[in-house]
Amino acid sequence: MFEYHGWINVQESADADDEDGGNGLGNDRLRRIAGAVTARIGEIAGPGLLDLRWMNGELFLHLGGFHNHRAPEVLAFFREVGRLAPGSYGVMHVRDDEDPGRENEVRVLHMVRGRVTEDTERALSPCIPVLEDPCLE
């Protein structure tokens, strides 16, 4: 089982200067990034949520899903957005029972300035007994 939930505020850079008057829609580079992300979504889209949209002049990506088996393309896609848009920030929680040594934990991927780090989500781990009761045999 592979479960994931996350969001990214897609930013061209971490520069606070608004060269487009505060409206990300006017930024040509960010619109090109949006096009590249949209194209990737079309390539890897499946039954999960991959939603890129403009909200109040900012570009956001929301993703989530629940697959029977590991979906490495989702993890790669999260990192790829950071490479395409190095000012981006966000988080994604992942539960993967096929990941040896981590099958009983929820991981959290943090994106800060486009770079992704990974930690155990302590509030949700270990999955058994925090989220689920142990199997009684």
Rank of each mutant, 00 (worst) to 15 (best):
residue 62 H to C: 06
residue 103 E to I: 02
residue 80 E to I: 01
residue 27 N to M: 03
residue 84 L to F: 13
residue 100 P to C: 11
residue 60 F to E: 09
residue 54 W to E: 13
residue 125 S to D: 14
residue 5 H to K: 07
residue 6 G to W: 00
residue 67 H to E: 15
residue 22 G to K: 01
residue 92 M to C: 08
residue 133 D to G: 12
residue 87 G to F: 05
residue 52 L to M: 08
residue 43 E to Y: 02
residue 62 H to V: 05
residue 45 A to M: 03
residue 104 N to T: 12
residue 98 E to D: 13
residue 67 H to Y: 13
residue 128 I to K: 08
residue 135 C to S: 14
residue 33 I to H: 01
residue 7 W to T: 07
residue 51 D to P: 07
residue 19 E to G: 12
residue 115 R to Y: 11
residue 102 R to N: 15
residue 65 G to C: 09
residue 89 Y to N: 15
residue 12 E to W: 01
residue 33 I to R: 00
residue 125 S to H: 02
residue 137 E to M: 04
residue 105 E to I: 13
residue 103 E to V: 10
residue 70 R to H: 10
residue 102 R to H: 15
residue 18 D to G: 09
residue 59 L to W: 08
residue 81 V to C: 04
residue 121 E to V: 10
residue 77 F to Q: 03
residue 53 R to T: 00
residue 67 H to T: 04
residue 56 N to Y: 06
residue 59 L to D: 10
residue 118 E to L: 09
residue 125 S to A: 14
residue 109 L to W: 08
residue 25 L to G: 12
residue 13 S to D: 15
residue 83 R to Q: 13
residue 113 R to F: 06
residue 56 N to Q: 14
residue 107 R to N: 04
residue 64 G to W: 04
residue 117 T to P: 06
residue 131 L to G: 02
residue 23 N to P: 06
residue 74 V to M: 00
residue 84 L to H: 09
residue 133 D to E: 14
residue 23 N to F: 10
residue 73 E to T: 03
residue 128 I to G: 09
residue 112 V to G: 13
residue 52 L to F: 08
residue 12 E to N: 10
residue 39 A to G: 05
residue 115 R to W: 11
residue 29 R to A: 15
residue 111 M to K: 02
